[in-house]
């Protein structure tokens, strides 16, 4: 029982230690561009470009829903309708754009990375890479994490663009607020730091999702079942740490 209680404390600490060591090795492997250059492009396409449709779909709908709900909650005629734009645009830029993209990537990209690396681990492909004299961390993890850091802000911008567009469109077509009023309201309360904050957030999210998923996949044990476990853990842990980072960033930077 004492051991069990102790494990609750030591296991996460040990995991964090191994995670840090993995990152440390990955950082050390970064200068060896030649080992992963080809993989980097490949991963940028698979993490970034291929995720565009689903991210844009989700963001478009969340923008539209935010607009409809905001106008539903604005019951008093004293408040101008342009306030809808002033609410939807910053919430998209500050929170929804990055978080919606983050959740989708945690499921889509995080799970895939963990399954990929987990399978490579249990079928000894990682050992094969190492035995050839290749830096497996540099070859497998660095391009994935870099691709996450580079492509996540791109996805974030796409999400904001489509989300705000969806908000304007549904506001105008649904008769909630004309497009001009929506934009006027958004401009009145627009802070140039907001999108910068969003970019910072998406950089952090991109790093967290890919590095956590790589960590879970790279250290998979126990055959097919282990791969399944790693995949689930990667998606769940990515989401949890994404929310934590969201709170920490909002508390420190806003």
């Amino acid at each position: 029982m004492v051991k069990l209680t102790l494990d609750i404390v030591t296991n996460p600490l040990a995991a964090f230690g191994r995670y840090s060591r993995l990152l440390f090795h990955a950082f050390g492997a970064m200068p060896e561009l030649s080992t992963y250059r080809k993989n980097l492009w490949e991963q940028m396409v698979r993490i970034g470009v291929d995720s565009l449709p689903i991210v844009m779909l989700a963001a478009g709908f969340s923008g539209a829903v935010t607009t409809v709900q905001t106008s539903y909650q604005l019951v008093t005629p004293l408040i101008p309708r342009s306030i809808i734009g002033a609410i939807v645009v910053p919430s998209m830029i500050l929170e929804l754009g990055a978080v919606v993209t983050g959740f989708i990537l945690a499921g889509r990209v995080g799970a895939r990375i963990a399954a990929e690396l987990g399978t490579m681990r249990v079928t000894e492909q990682i050992d094969a890479l190492e035995s050839m004299g290749l830096n497996s961390i540099g070859y497998l993890i660095v391009p994935r994490v870099l691709a996450g850091i580079v492509m996540f802000p791109v996805l974030y911008v796409a999400a904001c663009f489509v989300g705000i567009g969806g908000g304007i469109l549904i506001g105008d077509l649904g008769g909630f607020v004309p497009a001009e009023e929506f934009v006027d309201g958004a401009r009145e309360f627009f802070q140039p730091f907001d999108p910068i904050f969003g970019i910072i957030k998406s950089l952090v999210f991109g790093f967290l999702i890919t590095s956590i998923s790589c960590f879970k996949g790279y250290y998979t044990r126990g055959g097919a079942e282990g791969v399944g476990r790693a995949t689930t853990q990667a998606a769940v842990a990515s989401c949890v740490f994404l929310l934590l980072a969201d709170l920490v960033l909002a508390a420190t930077l806003l």
Binding site: G48, M151, V154, V157, A158, F161, P195
Partner: peptide, 13 residues
Amino acid sequence: KVGLTIIVATLIF
């Protein structure tokens, strides 16, 4: 593909 996506996103931003 990657280059184009990044350029378009930067412009939109």
